[in-house]
Design a protein around this nucleic acid. Structure first.
Lengths: 343, 343
DNA sequence: ATTAGCACTCTACTACGGAGAGTGCTAAAA
DNA sequence: TTTTAGCACTCTCCGTAGTAGAGTGCTAAT
């Protein structure tokens, strides 16, 4: 662990906050003036030199001011989490009101949530629907559609409805479909999709010994119906972040847009964090994915009765207003949880 | 109409093609060398001066080569459409094979189609699902869900399935729901969603005179169920176009990303073109939306029995390889149409 | 009608130099 | 021992100047 006294920490935080407001390297004079610590620029220079030695600050070049490193941001954020205040909640509340009207469609709700986050934060807003391993099947309904097709409608306890068209290999009546559906419901309702997948695999392994043709068919249909991309990721606000001076450079924009389009890397990242409680923060190089090493991520999972129902977050430059970001994400996560909890 | 002789046209096309390959202003020497027209640079200079006077070319500055204007591209494209050849179909076919597997879910199919288009074209790929005015209701199913909610599942003739959760204001049995559903189906099946909306409005105006409580409830449910954002737009390939030198400038990237996020402007644009047959091309300033005046659009609607089932297209710089773009879009539209037609 | 020749124009690139901001170091002060 | 003042030094930023090169328009010859 890093040894650092209170005064140095204050100066580090002052530099970080200064840099967040204005992306120019921060000099000793600026710190001395802006924060009434009763220290002269010279003293502060000494401390800054120490902080640099510790790897918390860097200079873009000799004789520029200092800029926080990722580790510098980390220390700042950690000290922030201990005593964080609430930021402009009013603005957010207003936007939440509009989201209320969308509660009945979780996908659209999440899209709009990601947009809302990007609007208030001016960073990328992200929202992800629950992953199959934690999604519980409420019921399944089956319909004939156009003679040779079958529509499977999946309801989850979390309020998601997913549908999938399946091609039928042989004729079947709606009556049989109803029987299949009620069999599947009695068998699988209340289990998570991952559990169901496991059960299906087991069933299939002894399928040959089973002679009930209908059941074996039911199993097959259910398996196909479950092969669905749960865990959708919605990202909004690219034009928002392009306004930031941090993205003046084309290379960085390219990296970010690649990261956005390669959604599965972000999904993988969020998956890791979905189980944890509270607001999680990943700063620049702490990120394990190469595409994301220049950006910071602030996320929180939305949990209902300890069961995650989604993830919301922010992606932005390492020079992010973490205080604001944390507050927004914390509030949004709680709001979504509350809203979905009322269903 | 513009008067222009065959030789000038050849030179214009030569300049456009040259510029498409390499985004540098084209000089008279280059044209003389690259295209064996048997003319000297000086002659070509004269013709280029004429073309500039006609508004088909411009110079970035006095002593640079020439660059096509939007009107220049237009002439090039028009002469192209008369005698167009087929381009690298093989590559496209290969990608189409993967799309085949997705035919059962139209939304995912369209997402993947837009990705495929961007991959082969290296421009933005766009795909849009049918608009409600041309979407025909096949059937509607209603379910109780968690005691106080109602799930409405809409099937369209085009193979789309949409679902919507509605909150119930008062208790209702599944039996009643079934009766409502079969009433709605007998009444509305086979009509386009827009037609149904009209019918509903009519019904509601005389609702007061009707005493069948169930029917009035059915009408209300149906109305809510139809308030669905059909006509989704999918855009892919931002990181693809960022590699183009045309987007070296930050301002242009911002405009493009704004255009992408403000999907409704693009949707409006595509709506206008959805009714037309064949490949439609809009070049730069021909575009009525401000956000799009710096980009070109190549689109084609996918029609099944004269009824549009979607729109596919490309958005790119005005300096676009129109020949390739046209070929890709034409083929993709035909492929999608054929695939959906087989259902 | 076409071409060769030539002067002209404009950009892109490099080099130079001064202003300004911020540093590190040293020596004095607290 | 810690803090501060002073000062020389370093590096970026920005404007100016000068040059090479590409491409033009015009004129006169073919």
């Amino acid at each position: 662990m890093l040894m650092i006294d209170e005064r140095s920490k204050k100066i580090l935080c002052a530099i970080v906050e200064n840099y967040i407001n204005l992306p120019d390297p921060v000099g000793s004079r600026t710190v001395a003036k802006g924060h009434p610590l009763g220290l002269s620029p010279a003293t502060i220079r000494n401390i800054m030199a120490d902080l640099e030695e510790m790897g918390l600050l860097t200079q873009p070049h000799t004789s520029a001011g200092r800029v926080p490193t990722d580790r510098g941001y980390r220390l700042y954020v950690d000290s922030l989490l201990l005593e964080r205040g609430s930021t402009d909640i009013e603005r957010i509340q207003e936007i939440y009101l509009n989201l209320e009207t969308l509660r009945d469609n979780i996908d659209i709700l999440l899209v709009e949530t990601s947009k809302a986050i990007s609007m208030v934060s001016h960073y990328l807003g992200i929202a992800m629907s629950p992953k199959p391993n934690v999604t519980t099947l409420n019921k399944i309904e089956l319909f004939k559609y156009k003679s040779d097709k079958l529509a499977a409608i999946l309801f989850t306890d979390e309020g998601m409805i997913k549908n999938k068209l399946l091609s039928l290999d042989s004729e079947i009546t709606q009556k049989d479909l109803n029987r299949i559906a009620s069999y599947l419901n009695s068998e699988f309702s209340g289990y998570t999709l991952d559990e169901i997948r496991l059960k299906i695999l087991k069933e299939m392994s002894r399928e040959k010994t089973m002679c009930d043709r209908l059941i074996s068919r039911a199993i097959r249909i259910c398996q196909e119906a479950l092969s669905f991309p749960f865990g959708d990721l919605f990202v909004s606000g690219l034009s928002e972040v392009l306004e930031l001076p941090d993205f003046a450079d084309l290379q960085k924009i390219k990296e970010l847009s690649r990261a956005i389009e390669e959604k599965h890397t972000i999904i993988k990242l969020l998956d890791k964090l979905a189980d944890l409680d509270g607001v999680q923060i990943i700063i620049g190089s702490e990120n394990s994915m190469d595409e994301m090493k220049k950006f910071s991520v602030v996320v929180s999972s939305c949990k209902e009765d300890g069961r995650p129902v989604g993830v919301v977050g922010i992606i932005g430059p390492t020079r992010m207003n973490y205080l604001k970001a944390i507050s927004i994400i914390d509030n949004t996560a709680k709001f979504i949880t509350r809203m979905l909890g009322e269903r």
